[in-house]
Design a protein around this nucleic acid. Sequence first.
DNA 1: TTTATTGCAAAACCTTTGCATGTAT
DNA 2: ATACATGCAAAGGTTTTGCAATAAA
Lengths: 156, 156
Amino acid sequence: MDESSLADAGLRTTLPRRLILNIMENSAQRHLGAEDIYRALHESGEEVGIATVYRVLTQFEQSGIVIRHRFDGDKAYYELNDEEHHDHMVCVECGRVFEFIDDAIEQRQREVASAAGFVLQDHSLCLYGVCEGMQFSEKCSMPKESEPGIYQVEED
Amino acid sequence: MDESSLADAGLRTTLPRRLILNIMENSAQRHLGAEDIYRALHESGEEVGIATVYRVLTQFEQSGIVIRHRFDGDKAYYELNDEEHHDHMVCVECGRVFEFIDDAIEQRQREVASAAGFVLQDHSLCLYGVCEGMQFSEKCSMPKESEPGIYQVEED
DNA sequence: TTTATTGCAAAACCTTTGCATGTAT
DNA sequence: ATACATGCAAAGGTTTTGCAATAAA
């Protein structure tokens, strides 16, 4: 995912767009809210308006550069679309977001949709619970989001 | 689910609470937004403030009388908690919400969580697509929500 | 130069809250 | 009588929009 994705998406290569793309690529957190990005911009001295952040994120979503999530709260979270579909687990204690892939669930969803005559376009699955780290300590000790963190469960 | 559920929940039996419970029990739509309920109240001549609607729905959720969903948009939808867990399919064309139960998916979620050391508390799964009715006509011809509409897919 | 993009402030939208009044127990 | 519930209006948080100024093509 480099800057050419902007051109590919039919978006002019502007400073705000390059900056936001950069932040999302280099953030320790894969899942960022608009306000997080706005804050990161200002912390690095870049004066980009919050309206622009929202507009850019919306354009990024429409062109497939990012995926917008709305886990459980009232604000949206954005993550780069790495073309590898995954679902999410959110720790209700520490708020951290984990990703996982499970082919059996994916397959089953297709069957459910098909059985109901539904043409499946998309889905969102989010598990809520307490992560391993928070079960035994105040501080979460699970791998950071910036580390490889996709759990692939073995098929039976 | 009758009015005694209010007492069971430790909530005083007040007019607004009875009215809202009634609307949710008798609505053709199982999934209602706060505004929908507010409108229904006013259409039947009951003067209940929108703040009360929100407060009552929050209390209902906290006492397990209703379940709050936040499908994809920015507003919340509430449905009576019939004690039978199910997931949802939302038609992106007509907006109708369908319910389904799939034990294989439920089981697999437990396995995924467990494999990640996660203590699972809850989950939300929503499939998005085009319902059968909308594939062939302008008008959706799928069973109305008020009719029995839970799709139970056979296990393999 | 032409068209898209930005910034600002204002508004839209859904939801929550403070406070005085009213109601259930 | 007491504690809880309500209505109103005001405020909260997030996201969108109008419009004049600016920058990319």
